[in-house]
């Protein structure tokens, strides 16, 4: 490739980008891995196999996956209604979908807690059915779904808008019923976007802290999530434990994201 560039500013912009990226993101993350990596496998095993860590990991990844899954269902419903139907208040709702992006997590945390607490607006009805809203794994799941479902809406929305109705009309003229059309024409077309939405919601949920810690109750072994466990270790000045848990968490979530990406590529490959 020629060194001569037509549009100027390449060296300056790339130089700044790489320097800044390194200083703010890469070097600090590398420091984390160096700190954790320097401990050796035995130490890693000791820290990560502690029952409290395992319980937190199970809750974090389990609740995140469940929340992302429910986000996909709710997100698809909301997207469908927003894109395909016209009704009063549609534009307002469309704007409101971004609320979880814009509302600080601490605010989301305390307000969700107040609603789902046993005496809260929704919590009292849940209690009537014997379901504990706040201060339970279910509360963690609620907070993570709140955080996650806008990701699904915002990734599926443009795809559904672009899909148009031509494909469906074609299917309809070939005699397919509405449900068949949805399952065999629309859903496959939306699948890559749904998976992307799931991935984003899932990734965000794994790391989520602010909205969860208020509603979860933070009982070790029961409702404690991994990020909170890291904070707990830090507060006891157990830097090494915190670093190992953080590094392990990053490795697992990067691996999961990578796998989902592979799956995604596989799907796109078949489509072509």
């Amino acid at each position: 490739m020629s060194k001569h560039r037509v549009i100027p500013g390449f060296g300056l912009s790339l130089g700044f980008t790489v320097t800044y990226l390194s200083l703010i993101i890469l070097i600090p993350l590398a420091a984390l891995f160096v700190k954790a990596g320097g401990l050796g496998p035995a130490e890693w095993w000791r820290i990560l196999s502690a029952p409290r860590v395992l319980a937190a990991a199970k809750l974090t990844f389990g609740a995140s996956a469940a929340a992302a899954m429910v986000s996909v269902v709710v997100g698809l419903l909301v997207t469908w209604v927003l894109v395909r139907y016209r009704f009063p208040g549609r534009r307002l709702l469309d704007a409101m979908v971004d609320l979880p992006f814009a509302l600080p997590t601490a605010v989301a945390g305390i307000t969700l807690t107040s609603i789902y607490a046993p005496n809260g607006w929704i919590g009292q009805y849940l209690a009537g059915w014997g379901i504990q809203g706040a201060y339970s794994p279910f509360g963690v799941f609620i907070a993570l779904t709140f955080i996650g479902f806008p990701f699904v809406v915002r990734t599926v929305q443009p795809v559904l808008e672009d899909l148009g109705t031509e494909l469906e009309e074609a299917a309809a003229t070939l005699g397919a019923g509405r449900l068949t059309v949805f399952c065999r024409v629309i859903l496959p077309a939306l699948l890559p976007a749904l998976i992307t939405g799931f991935t984003l919601a899932f990734a965000r949920a794994i790391g989520e802290y602010g909205s969860v810690i208020f509603i979860s109750g933070n009982l070790p072994m029961k409702t404690e999530i991994l990020p909170l466990l890291i904070v707990a270790q830090l507060e006891q000045y157990k830097y090494r434990d915190a670093a190992v848990i953080a590094a392990g968490m990053l490795i697992v979530s990067f691996a999961l994201l990578f796998l989902i990406n592979l799956l995604q590529r596989q799907l796109n490959w078949h489509k072509r």
Partner: peptide
């Protein structure tokens, strides 16, 4: 790499600075 911070928990985003600049950090 630009997208990387999206996949990093905010808690870890704080932790890395503590590991670098905290009293017992590098």
């Amino acid at each position: 790499l630009i997208d990387l911070p999206f996949a990093v928990s905010p808690v870890i985003a704080g932790l890395v600075w503590v590991l670098l600049f905290g009293a017992r950090g590098w």
